[in-house]
Amino acid sequence: KEFRPGDKVVLPPYGVGVVAGIAQRSVSGVSRAYYQVDFPGSRSKAYVPVEAPHSVGLRKAL
């Protein structure tokens, strides 16, 4: 896996977040693995496909 729990990442347009782990989510009846990204200071979460994280701009924070 490219990202691990605890990694600081950037996800446009949300900003800097932390990978909380990998979650299985069902979309249109198909279960897939997603990185769960939490954003400190907020209750917001984002789910990014493990198979294509760069397709939505997910990258490691510098």
Rank of each mutant, 00 (worst) to 15 (best):
D7A: 04
V56L: 08
H54R: 07
R59M: 07
S55H: 08
F3C: 15
P49W: 08
Y34I: 00
Y14M: 11
V30N: 05
L58V: 03
E2Y: 13
Y14P: 01
S42W: 10
K1V: 14
P5F: 09
A33W: 15
V50R: 02
V16F: 14
V30H: 11
L58A: 04
V30T: 08
Y47S: 02
G6E: 01
I22W: 03
V48L: 04
G29F: 03
V19W: 02
Y34E: 00
V50A: 03
P40K: 08
F3E: 00
R43I: 10
V37K: 01
P53K: 04
P53D: 05
V27Y: 10
V16G: 04
S26W: 15
S42L: 12
G15A: 02
P49D: 08
F3A: 00
Y35I: 10
P12S: 07
V16A: 09
R32M: 09
V50G: 00
G17V: 02
E2A: 13
V9H: 01
K1M: 15
R25Y: 12
V37A: 00
R4C: 13
A20C: 12
P53R: 06
G15V: 01
P13C: 14
L62S: 12
S28C: 15
R59K: 08
G6K: 02
R25L: 14
A33G: 05
Y34W: 05
V10S: 06
A46K: 10
F39K: 01
H54N: 09
A20G: 06
R4W: 09
L11D: 01
P13T: 06
A52T: 07
S55T: 11
E51W: 12
L58G: 03
Y14T: 01
V27L: 08
F3N: 00
V9P: 07
Y14N: 02
R4V: 09
S42A: 09
P40S: 07
G29E: 02
R4F: 10
S55N: 08
P49A: 07
G41I: 08
V37N: 00
A33H: 09
Y34L: 02
P49I: 06
Q36Y: 07
Y47M: 06
Y34F: 10
F39Y: 02
A46F: 10
K45W: 09
V50Y: 06
Y47F: 11
S55F: 07
A52I: 06
G41F: 14
G15K: 03
A61V: 14
V30I: 10
V19S: 02
V19D: 01
L11R: 01
A52R: 07
V56G: 08
Y34S: 00
F39S: 02
R43L: 12
Q24G: 04
A23F: 15
V27S: 06
F39I: 03
A23L: 15
S31M: 14
V48P: 00
V10M: 08
Y14W: 12
F39H: 01
S31A: 09
D38K: 13
P12R: 07
V18I: 11
K1A: 14
V37T: 01
A46E: 05
R59G: 04
G15F: 04
E51L: 07
S31P: 08
V10F: 14
V18A: 02
R59T: 09
S31Q: 11
V56I: 07
L11A: 02
A33V: 10
D7Q: 05
Q36A: 09
V56K: 08
K60E: 08
K1E: 15
L58S: 03
P5S: 08
R32E: 04
G57K: 05
K1N: 14
Y47E: 03
A46V: 14
A20K: 10
G29V: 01
Q24I: 15
Q24D: 07
A33C: 12
V27H: 09
V27F: 12
V37Q: 00
I22G: 00
Y35V: 03
K1C: 15
D38Y: 14
L11K: 01
K45E: 05
K45A: 12
A46S: 05
F39M: 03
R43K: 12
G17N: 00
K45V: 15
R59W: 04
Y35K: 00
P12H: 10
A33K: 10
E51K: 06
Q36S: 05
G29Y: 02
K8Q: 09
H54S: 09
L58M: 14
S28A: 13
V9M: 03
E51S: 09
P49F: 05
R25F: 14
E51T: 08
G6T: 03
A46Y: 10
A52H: 10
A61R: 07
P13I: 05
R4M: 15
L62I: 11
F3H: 05
L62D: 13
V30Q: 09
V19F: 05
K45M: 12
K45Q: 10
Y35R: 02
S44R: 14
G6H: 02
G41N: 11
V9K: 01
P5Y: 08
K60L: 14
R32A: 15
A23N: 05
F3V: 02
G17I: 02
Y34K: 01
S42K: 11
G17D: 00
A33S: 11
A46C: 11
G17C: 03
S44L: 15
Q24A: 07
Y47G: 00
V56M: 12
R25T: 05
S42H: 09
V37R: 01
A23T: 14
A61E: 06
Q24N: 11
V27I: 11
H54V: 05
G57L: 05
G21V: 05
Y47I: 03
G29D: 03
R25G: 08
V48W: 03
V10R: 04
E2P: 10
K8R: 12
D38Q: 12
A61C: 15
V18Q: 04
K45R: 14
V9L: 03
A46G: 04
G15Q: 02
S55R: 10
F3Q: 00
A52G: 08
P53E: 04
L58K: 03
V27K: 09
R59Y: 09
V37D: 00
Y34D: 01
K60N: 08
F39W: 02
R32L: 06
G15M: 03
L58I: 09
P49V: 04
P53A: 15
K8A: 09
L58C: 06
F39A: 01
D7Y: 03
V19Y: 05
Y35S: 01
G29L: 03
S44P: 08
V50T: 04
G41K: 09
V9S: 02
G21M: 10
S26V: 14
P53T: 12
V10N: 05
R32K: 11
G15Y: 03
V10H: 08
V16H: 11
R25D: 03
S42G: 11
A20W: 08
S31H: 08
G21I: 04
I22F: 06
S44Q: 15
V19P: 00
